[in-house]
Design a protein around this nucleic acid. Structure first.
Lengths: 241, 241
DNA sequence: CGAGACCTTGATTGTGCTCAAGAGCGGTGG
DNA sequence: CCACCGCTCTTGAGCACAATCAAGGTCTCG
């Protein structure tokens, strides 16, 4: 919960009172095994899920079972803040890895937001920043080939995990199966495998056994045409409310 | 401006005072020719753009000039509400057709939002609903082939223009070149052409000379696997603030 | 030690891209 | 009024990236 407040404070100004109000929100802790669905499509939810440990994604799925991730959330991120404003889930929520999540009731969140406009503003901004990432993913899917797409994902994660920019994680845990990566990138698992090996052969990055090791950051950024602006946009703090 | 307020009121409750406050926001009118850029990538903006006439899209672009639309906005929609929360544009804004837009200063918008929490809430919700469309596009790009993608776009527009669901426009103006459709769907213009002809040969839809005529709505929905839930999510009004 | 999930690799197929050239149409200027 | 130009649409041929199908290998956990 602390972590969440810190992440909010990185892009929005919050004073001490507002921070403690957020930090003392009620929450139910849930321990979720990997691959388990947390929220099903169409469900009406009354909580937002804060990731405490693990990796959680929002997933869309056709009747035929084809899956596509719409986002991926690290610890300290509120996965479905969106649901405060649109409680009927337009997509499922899945634990990518074994995860611990904190369920925060919308009511409580809403109360804090009502009481402190700066908090409402911060939450709103958080939604916006999340959807800027989504927009980037859309660009990624539409205009880049498999190699560049994969490289872009790995770059993004390096920045997000490294709490950067400018800090970037050169090596990070990423216990995601190749099949899940396929669903993240709109590829097949077979092609993900070949793509990873290609990136490795070129000495750009090693992805194996649950972690990512970036060998040539510059090279990876180049093949991805990665520009982290969209992640940093919130860093230039916008004044309070 | 009226139209904008009506669209907001469709998903969020606003009383008379709040509506008039919104309706009397100051605005600068701009007349923009087709294909002209309105906001450039990276620019720091101080206005949000309300579409009054025409069609405006948010566009991402690589150095090599490959373009990808991230959204498409009809009259009455506020294109870059996002920019209130993240004023540095992460992407360009382009008039797809000849358009009239109203520039509303962030300051003014912010003042109204500060004064009336229900307005702030409505704007926030509007952002969320927009990004739900973006999420659907992502799904579209990742998991559907050209035919289905195109069909999905045409279905979505039919619903959005028809002010539905359940009302759907069986025939609507859509003065978008095939090259622009290509940038919307992550295809090439050549393939857009072939796809449109295929859909026409199957008597599903006719796209020509600036309009769309849906011949077989059910068939089109089926090939697109179109489920309008994501557009309607806001219709079930959530109580005020 | 065995079972299941996950990864790796090969062969083949197909969707959509590239390159290229021609036709239709509307607007502009001589 | 006609000629021309540019933009958009149309169509063809060949190619490439990624999907599909299939089989074998490896790792981990019980």
């Amino acid at each position: 919960m602390e972590l969440f407040v810190r992440k909010l404070a990185r892009h929005s100004e919050l004073n001490e009172i507002e921070r403690t109000a957020l930090a003392s929100l009620p929450a139910t802790r849930l321990d979720i095994p990997a691959h388990r669905e947390i929220v099903r499509f169409g469900e009406v939810v009354e909580n937002s899920c804060l990731v405490s440990r693990g990796l959680v994604g929002r997933v869309n799925q056709t009747l035929s079972g084809v899956r596509q991730f719409a986002s991926l959330h690290l610890p300290g991120e509120m996965v479905d803040l969106f649901s405060m404003m649109a409680p009927q889930a337009a997509m499922g929520l899945t634990a990518v890895t074994r995860s611990v999540i904190l369920q925060v009731p919308h009511r409580a969140l809403q109360q804090v937001a009502d009481q402190y406009p700066a908090v409402a503003s911060a939450l709103w901004r958080d939604c916006v920043l999340q959807s800027m990432i989504g927009t980037q993913w859309l660009f990624n899917m539409g205009q880049r080939d498999a190699r560049a797409r994969m490289a872009h994902l790995l770059c993004e994660m390096a920045v997000r995990i490294g709490d950067g920019p400018p800090d970037v994680a050169r090596r990070y845990d990423f216990p995601v199966t190749q099949e899940q990566m396929a669903d993240l990138l709109g590829l097949t698992s077979v092609h993900v495998n070949r793509t990873l090996m290609a990136l490795r052969r070129e000495d750009l990055v090693i992805v194996a056994r649950g972690f990512v090791e970036i060998v040539d950051w510059k090279g990876l950024v180049a093949t991805a045409e990665f520009d982290p602006t969209y992640l940093a946009a919130g860093t230039a703090k916008v004044s309070g409310r």
